[in-house]
Design a protein around this nucleic acid. Sequence first.
DNA 1: ACCCTAACTTTAATTCTTTTGCAATAATCT
DNA 2: AGATTATTGCAAAAGAATTAAAGTTAGGGT
Lengths: 146, 146
Amino acid sequence: MPEMLSPIDQHSEAAAALRERGYKATSQRLVVRSALVELGRHVRAEELLAAVRDRLPNVSLPTIYASLEALEEAGLARRVPAGRGAALFDAGPVDHHHAVCRRCGAVEDVPLGAELDSTLASASRIGFRADGAEVVVHGLCAACHD
Amino acid sequence: MPEMLSPIDQHSEAAAALRERGYKATSQRLVVRSALVELGRHVRAEELLAAVRDRLPNVSLPTIYASLEALEEAGLARRVPAGRGAALFDAGPVDHHHAVCRRCGAVEDVPLGAELDSTLASASRIGFRADGAEVVVHGLCAACHD
DNA sequence: ACCCTAACTTTAATTCTTTTGCAATAATCT
DNA sequence: AGATTATTGCAAAAGAATTAAAGTTAGGGT
């Protein structure tokens, strides 16, 4: 169970994960994945586009979305269900959850706390093949409830 | 702690909740809330518009969205973070969570399983005033993983 | 190692959802 | 009841995500 991977290892690991799922390991997808890891936060597709512009001069938004979709199915990206405005993505799965402010829409990380095993068991009972679960806390962030 | 409320009680309870938060209890909001309760499932704004058409002939989509926003802040409606396409709403908080299929986007209910107390405690530790939490399971629904 | 096929990227445009501005309306407070 | 002020309704626009068509590229087979 490797803890820290070099950029090169991350790269080939991502490529392997894509091929395993029957996807082609294109440079666009790998660069999007790298950008997601490097940014290490929640980003919109548009921000991602800006982040990869220097490495992929001709990428466009549809490619970002297409890449994210492939990465998501390969388990290399996660769509954060913020619920407001543009969708957010991160390089999950990582060990934290999200708190979404219902006033300003801010998305903050919440350290892992709950045991999700029983919920995953419930999901599989209804025929759902879960590959992850996330807790979304809703309420008011520190800036909004004063 | 009332268990079952008559429609009239639900109505006045919703009105009280709105006023408590400083919102006006307009008929549009109350009808939207009622429709949400009656439908008892995840609906898009457009479906909600169709559902209230007979009771509010002149409502328009912007009003539905505005009403949902007010209801959400009053804790009378919940935006389900499905993450794909149009936002879904339900009359939550109710005792179930959601499983989102990453292939077809279907949203299914998952019986409550996890203890969320520790996650809520984590959230309050970072200054977040939580009024609810929801588990979003992601993976493949029964129809998609065959 | 090369070619072929299917998949992918690109560009442009489109579709669909959601928000905004302003006049008219309706709900709350005195 | 009357005044005040948020909210609705309508039109239009902004914004996000997808689609279509054409060209390009990756990966499997020979």
